[in-house]
Design a protein around this nucleic acid. Structure first.
Lengths: 126, 126, 126, 126
DNA sequence: GTGGTCTAGACCACC
DNA sequence: GTGGTCTAGACCACA
C-alpha cells in the first residue's frame, strides 16, 4: 500500500489516511524521523503544500510533532497510536453497521455477509 | 431515518441515498406515485433544483420513472430494487473490509468486532 | 481595531486573533453570516488562501461553521464564545504573571504596576 | 527555571531571555565570569553556534562583555541591569493590558483578574 | 537543508 | 457567487 491517490476525495485527506496507516503499521515507527516534507511530497507525487497540509492535520491529531528546522517525528507515545487505530476502527465499524441497517439488513444477515465477504472476497454468492 | 442532510457531502448525493433507502424499505413502495418534486423538496428542506437533480439520478438508475405531466413513479420491477439493495450492500461490505485490513486487522478480529458492535453498539469494550 | 497586520507574527495567526476578537465583541454577532472569504481577504488586504487558513482554524475552534456553497456563519452558541474569551484571558493572565515572577517581581509589585499601567498608560513613572 | 526550550520560538531568542533572567536574578551576578560558550551550550542542550548567537545579542544589549581569550563577563553596571529588568517589565505590562482591553475587559475587571490570578493561581473561579 | 508562510492563479462542484 | 482544493513558485529564519 503506497501513495495511491484517487480522484474522489481531497488529496490531502487521502495523504492523512495513508501516512496514518503507515504509522499504525510501523512503516513509520514511533519516535522515528519522517522524510522531509519535500521528499514525502515527491514520493506521493504531490505538491509540497498539499503534503504540508496533511502533515499539519496529523500534527493536530498528535500523531507527529514538528521540530523547527530539524524535521518531523512520529510520536513516541505508542498508546496514542494504538488509540488512533481504535478510533478509526470504531468509526468505520459504526458507519458500516449503521448503513447496513439503513439498507434494511438484520444483524444476523450482516454477520453472515461479513463472513462471506472475508472468506470469498465476494459476498452474495450463496 | 428522515431527510437528515449533513454538510460534508453533496446534498443531491445524500438525497439519492435517502430516497433510494426509502424505496428499498418500502416507504415508497413499488409502482407507487412519489410526492411532487416541490413537496419532496419541502420535506427535505432543500432547493427544488437540488431535489430534481437527485431524482434524475435515480431515474437513470431505473429506480423511478417519469410520466410526463403526471408525476414520478417508483419502478414496479421488484427484482431491480432488490438488485439495487445488493449492489449497495456489496459496495459497503467491500469498502469496510478493505479499510479494516488496511488498518492492520486480521479477518478473525474483524468478525469479532462486528459481533461486538452489533450486540453492544459499542466495540472495544471487552 | 481593524485588520492591522504587523510583520512580526504569521499573518494567518493575526487574522485568527482579529476575527476572534470581532466575534467576542459582537462586531460579528452570533449566528450571523460572515462576509465571503474573498471579501474578508480583500478587507484585510491579504491573499484569500491566507484568510481561508485563518477561518479553518476558527472553524476547528468551533467559533464559526461552514455551509458549503452558502457561506460561513458565526456559531449561535454564545456560551462557546464566552468560553473562548475566557480561555484567551486566562492564557494571557497566566503568561503575564509567570513572566513577571520570572523577572523577579513580588506579587504586590505586580499589582501596583498593573494599577499604574492602567491609570497612566505608563508604568515606572512614580 | 532552567534552560527549558520550547519549539515555538527561535531557540536563540529563548536563550537570550533565559540568560537575561539569570542575570537579573543574580544567578549570574554582576562582574562574574560566565561559563564557557561550550559549557553553556551543554547545559542548555543546544548547539554551541546557537548559544553563541544568543550571547552576541546579550553583548550588544550591554549585559555582558567579552574579554578576548579570557571569557565573557556579566556587566558590573547594576543600573544597567536594573534598567533592563524595567524595560522587559514595561514591555510585558503594556502588551498584557493592551490584549486584555482588546478582549473587551474594563480596567477594573483587569485589576480584579490579576488579583485572583495571583492569589489563586486560577482566575475565573469567583 | 529544514519547516513555515505567503502569493498568485486556477479549477471544481454546488446552489 | 460560494467554499474548497491544488499547483507552482517564492522567500524566510533557523540550524
Amino acid at each position: 500500500m503506497s501513495w495511491e491517490i484517487k480522484g474522489d476525495r481531497p488529496v490531502y485527506a487521502q495523504l492523512v489516511e495513508i501516512i496514518g496507516q503507515k504509522i499504525i503499521k510501523n512503516e513509520f515507527p514511533p519516535d522515528s524521523k519522517l522524510p522531509s516534507v519535500r521528499d514525502l511530497a515527491a514520493m506521493a507525487e504531490v505538491n509540497p503544500n498539499t503534503m504540508q497540509k496533511a502533515l499539519v492535520e496529523l500534527e493536530t491529531e498528535g500523531l507527529i510533532s514538528s521540530v523547527r528546522t530539524t524535521g518531523k517525528y512520529v510520536t513516541n507515545d505508542v498508546d496514542l497510536i494504538e488509540n488512533y487505530k481504535r478510533k478509526l476502527a470504531v468509526k468505520e465499524l459504526g458507519a458500516f453497521v449503521r448503513k447496513m441497517k439503513d439498507l434494511g439488513f438484520q444483524v444476523e444477515e450482516i454477520k453472515q455477509l461479513v463472513d462471506k465477504e472475508i472468506n470469498d472476497g465476494n459476498s452474495f454468492r450463496n
